[in-house]
């Protein structure tokens, strides 16, 4: 019985869809535009998150040890630091390693290498490399360290941390600006979509007015009269999402080089990311599309069907 009604409602909905086929095409098109715009917003959001997390992951602070710290003291200190919950990793870097690293970094600069070699003694002290779980923990940790009694072994400077922090703030600000702009653009598209769907449903109701009049006269239930138009709305969103999925792949491929050149080593493989988050992305898009179509069909049927 219920199945019977559903199949008849769907039949009526399909009829509505094809009777105004060009209108349906335009309606689906505008919904696709909205979804593309929202996708760009989502993508930029994902990219920013990605860049920030890579950046945080990479951010580490070296704390130089003073001359008077011995290797043993340094190792005790490192094991102490590793016990702190906010610290992800603390590592002792010996003076020799520091020298090596420094040479490696400046291997193209013969003047520096030469002058280093001319020195009899290693000019570097040992240092401790610290990584945290959360970059905003750095100031707290550094502040903690400078209070402890082993602070005399440490030369605490937070310049490196400050640089990283500055970069992150800048990226966050920048992406916020882009996202605000896209939020406005997307909202405009969504509003236009709602208006277009509303009008399309109104026209659908108008072209089916004879059928509707008869249905009501012979005692069709209100839900039977109304459901076809809600279903037509859902069909629009379903088709729009399918089209979005189809155009997503070539779109992402086209976009990839631009993203790569902008984000450089922090870039992300868009197609891979899309495939990984497929269900989540499609779910979100379908949800948004359905909200657009069902809310406007609901309003249109309420206004024009008097049910």
């Amino acid at each position: 019985m219920l199945f019977l009604e559903i199949s008849r409602v769907i039949k009526f909905a399909v009829q509505s869809f094809f009777r105004n086929i060009w209108l349906s095409v335009v309606t689906v098109f505008i919904i696709v535009l909205s979804l593309v715009s929202i996708s760009i917003l989502l993508t930029s959001n994902i990219l920013t998150q990605h860049v920030l997390s890579v950046l945080e992951e990479k951010t580490e602070v070296y704390i130089d040890l003073t001359k008077e710290a011995t290797t043993e003291q340094a190792q005790v200190l490192v094991s102490e630091l590793n016990k702190l919950p906010a610290i992800k990793e603390a590592l002792f870097i010996t003076p020799e390693q520091t020298l090596e690293n420094f040479k490696k970094r400046h291997q193209d600069d013969p003047l520096i290498i030469e002058s280093l070699d001319s020195l009899e003694e290693n000019p570097f002290t040992g240092s401790i490399k610290i990584k945290t779980h959360d970059i905003s923990d750095f100031p707290v940790i550094l502040n903690e360290l400078s209070k402890k009694d082993y602070s005399r072994f440490l030369e605490i400077e937070d310049k490196e941390f400050t640089d990283a922090k500055l970069l992150i703030t800048k990226i966050t600000e920048y992406s916020k600006k882009i996202q605000n702009a896209w939020t406005i653009i997307s909202s405009i598209f969504v509003i236009i979509s709602i208006l277009v769907v509303y009008n399309t449903i109104q026209i659908n109701i108008y072209t089916q007015r004879e059928e509707i009049g008869i249905m009501k006269l012979v005692g069709a239930s209100n839900s039977f009269v109304r459901s076809p138009f809600l279903i037509v709305g859902m069909v629009y969103s379903l088709i729009a999402v399918v089209i979005l999925v189809i155009i997503s792949y070539p779109l992402l491929v086209v976009l990839q080089p631009y993203v790569d050149s902008f984000f450089q080593e922090y870039s992300l493989n868009l197609v891979e990311a899309f495939a990984e988050n497929f269900i989540k992305v499609i779910g979100t898009e379908l949800l948004i599309a359905t909200i657009i179509t069902v809310s406007s069909s609901y309003l249109a049927t309420r206004k024009y069907l008097h049910v």
């Binding site: 019985m1 019977l4 009604e5 008849r8 059928e211 008869i214 249905m215 012979v218 005692g219 069709a220 239930s221 039977f224 009269v225």
Partner: peptide, 11 residues
Amino acid sequence: AFALESCGTPK
């Protein structure tokens, strides 16, 4: 038939 279909009458 349309009148009956609209009211959920079985085929």
